[in-house]
């Protein structure tokens, strides 16, 4: 037998365990802030994800990937979701997002983001209504207040004291967990860096559509709001960094993160769906094969 005989101690299952540990504070704060419904959503999503994983593989889970996917799927859901929505998201994420494509390593779309996208199509529109229907019906999230409403307080956004998805309950915890993963080199730090930079630059230079200027003027030219609200940080550190659905080569990942950043900021400034970070992930995922062909090293 020939070498190499040594292996790095950083195994795939360790990487996943590190991500779960980084997500735990976020989930804990979400439950603390939103109470039992959040616990039901998170618990339901993780349980359903694990159940589908076990059912499909007919074996105990090999790693924590189902737990990560379940947690992320739940964190993308509204805090006031009905009790069954978390379980539905977790099951969709693993069943459709992962195993329908052949399992770990083969799925082209981030399973959590895909489950959120599917739910938007499948469940009653009120759950994921646009920020303001053109008739004036509104959704309460800091990125999408009532038309004519006031700009959200940045301090409230930072501490998570605003309505929105579970994952926005603690932007500071998302940032800390994400930075820890970068420091541990669990995730590729270039991805969040480029994504957040693109969102920042886009929020400064893009003027926004007339409707946005009329209905939600605070969305224009406020980079900090765009960075902290609407799941931007969760997308940057936990969704785009999923290696399976990101391009393979470093430069490819940079392009990928930039695409996601452009889609995120464009959705916020030009469509009525400001909480579109998960959709931005799906769009960027769709570019991954092309990026990989463009740049393989």
């Amino acid at each position: 037998m020939r070498g190499p005989f040594l292996r790095s101690p950083q195994s795939t299952s360790h990487l996943m365990a590190q991500v779960v540990v980084a997500l735990l504070p976020i989930a804990t704060i979400a439950i603390w802030r939103h109470g039992a419904p959040a616990a039901v959503t998170l618990g339901g999503a993780v349980t359903a994800a694990l159940a589908v994983e076990i059912a499909v593989r007919r074996a105990a889970p090999r790693d924590l990937s189902a737990v990560i996917t379940g947690m992320l799927a739940a964190l993308l859901l509204p805090a006031d979701a009905p009790p069954w929505l978390g379980a539905a998201a977790g099951a969709l994420a693993i069943g459709v997002g992962k195993h329908a494509f052949g399992g770990l390593g083969k799925n082209p779309f981030n399973p959590a983001a895909l489950s959120r996208g599917l739910l938007m199509v499948l469940v009653p529109a009120t759950l994921f209504a646009p920020a303001w229907a053109w008739d004036g019906v509104t959704m309460a999230s800091p990125l999408a207040r009532e038309s004519g409403g006031t700009a959200p307080l940045l301090s409230a956004v930072w501490s998570g004291d605003v309505p929105g998805a579970l994952g926005t309950s603690a932007p500071w915890a998302v940032l800390l967990g994400g930075l820890a993963l970068v420091a541990l080199r669990t995730i590729d730090g270039r991805v969040p860096l480029v994504y957040l930079a693109t969102v920042t630059v886009g929020s400064i230079v893009l003027p926004g559509s007339d409707r946005i200027v009329a209905h939600a003027p605070w969305l224009v030219a406020d980079p900090l709001l765009h960075l902290l609200a609407g799941g931007t940080l969760l997308t940057a550190f936990f969704l785009l960094t999923d290696p399976v659905t990101a391009p393979f080569a470093p430069l490819g990942r940079v392009a990928f993160a930039a695409i996601a950043g452009v889609v995120t900021i464009a959705a916020r400034l030009y469509t009525p769906y400001p909480d579109a970070a998960a959709l931005a992930v799906l769009v960027a995922n769709a570019f991954t094969p092309a990026i990989d062909r463009w740049r393989s090293t």
Partner: peptide, 29 residues
Amino acid sequence: DEVAAREEVPCIRCGRCLEACPVGLPVAK
């Protein structure tokens, strides 16, 4: 402990092989 042998699992396309390769080969591909 030194060899830290473990079971093979599916490639997660993490790109570490490429970044470690001194001649810059996209090894997983």
